[in-house]
Nucleic acid binder design. Sequence first.
DNA 1: CGTATGACGAGCC
DNA 2: AGGCTCGCCATAC
Length: 104
Amino acid sequence: MAAGSLYAVIFDTVRAIPKGRVATYGQVALIAGLPRGARLVGYALHTLSEGTDVPWHRVINARGRISLHPQFGGLLQQELLEAEGVAFGPDGGVSLEGFRWQGP
DNA sequence: CGTATGACGAGCC
DNA sequence: AGGCTCGCCATAC
């Protein structure tokens, strides 16, 4: 599956996140085989195109917050998650306890 | 080929 | 409580 690039593994892992669920960068990295590659996940998603089939919006940081700046697409990410049934708290964060993906 | 970077994470001040 | 720094590792230039 991996097309020679670790990004392919990361993208495949992100695609495995079910609708209505979220995963942290660190968790995706861990499942993808990069225990300390949380940053790589963010960098990989950064290279995605607009028409990608990867549900990049389901990936958030360890605090359950959106890392992207709102004007850079973070606002869009929150709306996409809310559209899938993910509830955001009053502080703008997601309850990882309730929406975190349990893994493959 | 070497340097700098980044949609993170956890720790320290 | 909030903000800053260091560490990690592959990719980009």
